[in-house]
């Protein structure tokens, strides 16, 4: 056996172990959802996917027109944050998020709002007095603010869901 193969083998085994772990964990978590929640989660996945696809099309179109509104890496992260935010908000609103149990609701809202504030403070600190919109469009720090906005949106959705749940309960 070649030395390259022997060196690569542990990484392959580790990779397979991680994949197996992810698969079995996912299988285990499936049981935590009922059939309506699974459907709602799948619908949220689909919406998030099409949001990301739409975002990519818009970015590509702007690129073709020569509008450089942000670096490619920034655009990529903003798209990922947008789609994750859409997925999380939809999952929460349609009650397809297993950790959003009644006992966790208030803590969850508080955590999301706190993360949002921390991100904003961190973002302001990272700017070092520079504007967020520079010569190359949006600066890389905008990702931090987008994350803050995402946490805020999730927090607001969680608060709305908590309120509507409390009203619906008989």
């Amino acid at each position: 056996m070649s030395e390259k193969f022997i060196n690569t083998l542990p990484f392959v085994i580790a990779g397979l172990a991680v994949l197996a772990l992810v698969f079995f964990r996912a299988k285990k978590q499936e049981k935590r959802y009922d059939e309506r929640q699974l459907l709602a989660r799948n619908a949220a996945f689909k919406t998030a996917f099409f949001t990301l696809a739409g975002y990519c099309v818009v970015c590509a179109f702007l690129n073709m027109l020569g509008v450089n509104w942000a670096l490619t890496a920034t655009q990529m992260f903003l798209g990922a944050i947008l789609s994750i935010g859409v997925f999380a908000c939809l999952c929460l609103y349609r009650d397809a998020f297993f950790d959003f149990a009644k006992k966790n609701q208030k803590l969850y809202i508080f955590e999301m709002m706190a993360f949002s504030v921390i991100q904003v403070i961190g973002g302001v600190g990272m700017l070092h007095g520079q504007p967020i919109w520079g010569e190359e469009g949006l600066s890389f720090v905008s990702i931090v603010f987008a994350t803050a906005l995402c946490f805020f949106a999730v927090g607001v959705t969680a608060a709305i869901k908590t309120y509507t749940d409390a009203r619906q309960e008989d």
Binding site: D34, E35, R36, Q37, D95, D165, Q168, E169, D170
Partner: peptide, 18 residues
Amino acid sequence: SQQQLAEKVGVSRQTISA
């Protein structure tokens, strides 16, 4: 209650409500 029925059936309260 919706919650009690949901627990008996093994689904979430929101599913019974829906």
